[in-house]
């Protein structure tokens, strides 16, 4: 559907301008906010950056769940800093989206109404402290796979936001792996918790890269525009190749009996996640969809008096300053 729309819009645009635009991208130059761009490019970017921003914001919820119950003060401070970073990532990305002509409040309203999506991974619950390890290690790990190549994306503000984000992400993954190491080398009960967290987060992490490219309608155009730098399958393979030896190091078992290093291809063979589950979660039927959206709506509603109060205060101060002149 969406790919069709891009096409029909593109056909109304000046073919010469479209070609010049594509040439600029092919030559590796960055597109900046005030430059001419095809409508489909602008809309796809708003959708992608907005969805990414929402994911950073909603992604604070599963980890925020454990801030008050972290096992030590140090772990609590680390988790708090990590979750604060995610808020920052959301803000960098909203700013990048805003340069395309959509307002942050509009994007927020579209998240709150369910019109825009966020990453399906955050619709899974975090049941034990070991989940903080699994989330940092696997979920941030998968996010890094996606984000590193996006530092070279064709849209300047998006690429620059990605550079900032990537600088901060490796702390996230490392703190998660550190938790996993502690748990995996701990008591039997802690080991079981670590294994259980890996069991629950493995396939949802693989889903983070999206369905196979054979089924992805907007892949091709997005890759030509350098909005998407790799196919979903390429990134998923890279993630498995990187993560499987790490699980082995931890002495944990990846919940996939077909996971095996393939000497011939030089990559791991692995099982696909259950895509029916993925589409169900996307549709709103995951374990925490309702809870997550309700939490975001509540935060927005409860914060309204603060937003309006500060605006009123700023206006009052401005008027007083004018009167004093």
């Amino acid at each position: 559907m969406y790919a069709q729309m891009i096409k029909s819009e593109a056909s109304q645009e000046d073919p010469e301008a479209l070609k010049a635009f594509q040439d600029r991208i092919d030559a590796g130059s960055k597109i900046e906010p005030k430059d001419w761009m095809p409508e489909g490019y602008r809309k796809t970017l708003i959708r992608q950056i907005g969805q990414h921003a929402h994911s950073e914001i909603v992604g604070q919820l599963p980890e925020g769940n454990w801030i008050s119950r972290a096992p030590t003060l140090e772990r609590k401070a680390i988790l708090l800093a990590k979750v604060q970073d995610e808020a920052g990532h959301g803000l960098y990305l909203y700013c990048a989206a805003e340069t395309l002509g959509v307002s942050r409040d509009q994007l927020t309203r579209d998240l709150l109404s369910g019109k825009m999506k966020y990453s399906s991974i955050f619709n899974y619950p975090t049941l034990t402290w070991a989940d903080m390890g699994a989330v940092g290690w696997l979920v941030d790990g998968a996010a890094i796979m996606n984000q590193v190549p996006l530092q070279r994306t064709s849209y300047g503000p998006y690429a620059r936001a990605m550079v900032r984000i990537c600088k901060e992400e490796s702390f996230h993954q490392r703190q998660g792996f550190d938790i996993m190491m502690k748990m995996a080398n701990g008591t039997d009960a802690q080991r079981r918790m670590a294994q259980d967290a890996l069991n629950r987060f493995w396939y949802p992490s693989l889903m983070m890269f999206g369905p196979s490219d054979k089924e992805s309608v907007h892949s091709e155009q997005s890759m030509a525009w350098k909005i998407k730098m790799n196919t979903n399958d390429e990134l998923r393979q890279k993630f498995v190749d990187q993560t499987a030896p790490q699980a082995e190091y931890l002495g944990l078992t990846v919940p996939d009996e077909h996971l095996k290093f393939n000497e011939e291809s030089g990559h791991y063979d692995f099982s696909e996640p259950d895509w029916d589950e993925f589409f169900q979660v996307l549709k709103g039927n995951g374990p925490c969809n309702t809870e997550r959206l309700a939490a975001r709506n509540k935060a927005w509603d409860d914060g309204r008096w603060v937003r309006e109060g500060l605006l009123a205060h700023a206006k009052k101060k401005r008027n007083a300053a004018i009167a004093a002149e």
Partner: peptide, 18 residues
């Protein structure tokens, strides 16, 4: 955390920047 993934949803309303 988080990453963009392909999923279908409608466009967002545009507003004037700034």
């Amino acid at each position: 955390m988080s990453s963009p993934e392909s999923s279908p949803y409608n466009d967002t309303e545009a507003a004037e920047h700034g």
